[in-house]
Each structure stands twice: as structure tokens, then as C-alpha cells.
Design a protein around this nucleic acid. Structure first.
Lengths: 223, 223
DNA sequence: TCAATAGTGTCTGTTAGACATTATGGA
DNA sequence: TCCATAATGTCTAACAGACACTATTGA
């Protein structure tokens, strides 16, 4: 059984590890150390001198056995909600796991992000924050690419975007925008998936390009 | 002199308070408590039971005498860099101050954000994070409006956007997009600024509108 | 052959930016 | 009057979405 956290630890680092399973996103949960009936996000009390980013990476590796293909801090959570540790504050990270190749360590399982088991309120907030972070940085960082294997079809890429955005996208528009962005390179491979014409495989290989200049957006509804 | 932080405090809450002074952004700094020759961001050790948001608000009020018109958490900073307190980690917030009406408390002064005095490395990173946060949520939240007084001209609003974005904007396009967003209401007042035709005053009053549906963007250059 | 999916060409309505023009005050 | 700024109308190129069509496989 995991050792009880020291009373001196006033903050933890928690990881929301996300992968795509079929047509939905999944997060990795482990058995709660104090109550084996319940589940919790992987977390860790940083060693002295350990950076936050390093602690998050270690947390992910301890739970998964491998490092996420992409990690980013979500923020600090601590609005009086309960946490498996006795820490006042938890610094949350979101991490992406490319395929579902990784075999979680003992006691860890993937759960659908839309329908997780009961979590401590603060961890519940972190999961919500993770999906929000992924959506909002979807067009600023290669989130979808980091959730896919090294080679993929354009339909798979579009489905990943649709999964992350929670809405359908227009096929021709999607491919036009993708081509203009110089992000993928076609391979000399095709993949046949049941019936229908086989799809060409691509890999993520961003090339130099001019910064897209967009106009101002006023996308907020209310204060 | 400010009391020395307790050795038990493992994290602080720091506030990056931003206002617009003329043609540049400014941040509020106070004298460092241990070395009066140096400057630092306002910060605070949260009381037990105090939420992070509440601690950030209190930090701002203690330094300014008033609450910011908008606050948001930037994230947790702690990559081994030094901080005026002995905390391992600092949770940073950015706050907006509408005009420069507020008179900072003793020992506090506004500094240009582009050219601040020497800061502790971790606080320097928080200031950079603050401008990045403002830029990236500029089209998701009424940042520019919260930096302006209650009534303003459209030129002032555009100049605020240009200041935050660091680039010039097209006047006609800016006003078209603004009108389509139903965010401002014209007043029955005009203001004459030196020569030229007087400008009509507006106030921020967002109205119901349909969510704008945008296509996918691939705005990142490299991994 | 039909069904299903990949991939592309064309059209159209919307929009961002360029440009020009009018409006209205102060010097 | 001239000049500076506000405010707006028109044109054009770019682009997003709709639609239709071709291409290529398995059943």
C-alpha cells in the first residue's frame, strides 16, 4: 500500500492522462490509496528540488510505464475541495497517450472521460479543466496528432478533431485547411479498412510556413 | 516591515496587476520585503481554508486598495527559480485595472511591462505568462473592455486591442466585426480630442447572439 | 453488380482587408 | 481655408461550407 503523505506536503502534482479509445476519450485512474473501492487520478508529492514539469512526467511514468507524447500544465486547483492527499492545493497537468499501446501499471484502468467513476471533487474539476485545455489549445498545438499513432489516415485525423471538438466537421474544408497548413506528409502506403477505397497514410511533419494572419475575433458571449 | 514568511509555507499566490498607461501596458510592483532596493510582484501566503481565487483577490486589494475588474489564474510556477518568499511554488494570477484611477498603496508603483526593473526569475516568468494569457484569451473574454473606463470611443477600443496584440488592425474590419458581435451600445455623447471630428462614446453591453461557428484552425508552426 | 469509403472539383455566400469618400470638428 | 480624425460605402481576394462527382475497394 502506498505510503501516507507527510503532513508537511501542502501541494501535490496530479496528472490527467488522456487517450482516444474508439469513439471517445478516456482517462487513466488508479485505485485510491486510502480507500481501495474508489478511484483517483495519478498524483505525487514533488521531491525537494524537483520541478513541477518533472514531477508531472514522473507521475505519468509511474502510472503508465511510459511518458506522454505531450504534456501541459492546466493550473492549480484548491478551492477547498477534498483530495486523496491532505494537500491544500494540487497542480494539474494534462498528458496525451498516443495509441492505447501502453499497458497501465497494476491497479490502473482507462475510463471514459464522459462517464468516470466517482472522483474527489477537486480531481473532478481537474478532469473538466483537462478537456477544456485540450479544446482551447487544439488549434495552437498538435493535440490531435499526439493522440494518433505515427502514421494515420486523414479520416482518422478528422475523427480525432471531431472527437476533441465534440462536433462534425466538413470533409473538404478540413482537408483544404490541412493542406494549407503544411502539417502532414503523404506516405507511400495505403490502408484498407473493410469495404471502400483504401486510404492513404500520412505522418505529422510540419514545414515552414507563413504565420496565418487572422482578424480580431469577439467570441465571448457574456462577461 | 513585512513579516518573514513561515518555513511551513510551501506556496504563495502572486498577482500580476495590469493596466494601460498611454500607449503601453504597465504592471504593479512593490518594494521587496527583504531587500528594499529591489522590486517584486504583490504576493501572499494563503490562510488555511482560503481559496486560491480569494487569496489572489486579497493580494490585489492589499496592493491597490481596489479589486481588479477581471482576474484569472495563469498557473503554478516553481521550476527551481528563486522567489522573494521561500516557497517552492507560486500560483500566479493576472488582474486587470480599468483606468489608472487606483492609487497604489505605499511602496507600490506602475512599471512598463516591456521594461520592468530586475525581478526574481520566477516572477519574471509570471509576468511573461500574464501577457501570454491576456493575448490568448483576448478573443474569449472581454479583456480590452476591462482595461478601459466605462465609456470609451471605438478608436480607444481598437488601440487597446492593438496594444494587447502588438500589431495594427484594420479600422473598417475591426468595426464590422465589433458590430456583428453585439458587444457595445452607443451613448448619446461625443468627445472631442484635439482636432478632427468628435468620436461617439460607447459602453460595453453584450447582447444575446448566436455562437459563431468557425472552421478548424491549424495555427501552430512547430511541435 | 451494389455498397461503402476516399478523395477532389465547382459553386456560392461570407468576410477580411484595401481603398475611397463623406462627415465634422479645431486651428 | 486647411488639416486631422471619425465613420462608412464599395470592391476584391480568400475562404468555409454545400454539393456533386470520380476513384477504388470488398461483399
Amino acid at each position: 500500500m502506498r505510503e501516507r503523505p507527510s503532513r508537511l506536503a501542502l501541494y501535490t502534482v496530479d496528472a490527467v492522462l488522456v487517450t482516444a479509445m474508439g469513439s471517445e476519450l478516456a482517462i487513466l485512474l488508479g485505485r485510491n490509496s486510502s480507500d481501495r473501492e474508489r478511484w483517483s487520478l495519478p498524483w505525487r508529492i514533488p521531491q525537494t528540488g524537483e520541478t513541477l514539469d518533472a514531477a508531472a512526467a514522473t507521475t505519468a511514468r509511474d502510472a503508465l510505464g511510459e511518458l506522454p507524447s505531450w504534456m501541459e500544465q492546466i493550473g492549480a486547483f484548491g478551492d477547498g475541495k477534498r483530495h486523496p492527499s491532505e494537500a491544500d492545493v494540487s497542480v494539474a497537468y494534462v498528458g496525451l497517450i498516443p495509441h492505447q499501446t501502453a499497458s497501465p501499471r497494476d491497479g490502473h484502468t482507462w475510463f471514459p472521460v464522459a462517464n468516470p467513476p466517482l472522483l474527489a471533487p477537486r480531481q473532478r474539476a481537474m478532469v473538466d479543466g483537462a478537456t477544456k485545455t485540450l479544446q482551447s489549445s487544439l488549434d495552437q498545438a498538435p493535440i490531435a496528432f499526439r493522440l494518433l499513432p505515427a502514421t494515420f489516415t486523414l479520416s482518422e485525423l478528422q475523427q480525432m478533431y471531431e472527437l476533441l471538438l465534440g462536433k462534425r466537421l466538413h470533409k473538404a474544408s478540413f482537408r483544404r485547411a490541412l493542406q494549407a497548413a503544411w502539417l502532414v506528409e503523404p506516405m507511400d502506403e495505403w490502408r484498407s479498412e473493410g469495404r471502400g477505397r483504401p486510404a492513404q497514410l500520412f505522418r505529422y511533419l510540419p514545414k515552414k510556413k507563413r504565420r496565418p494572419h487572422r482578424g480580431v475575433r469577439f467570441d465571448f458571449l457574456y462577461p
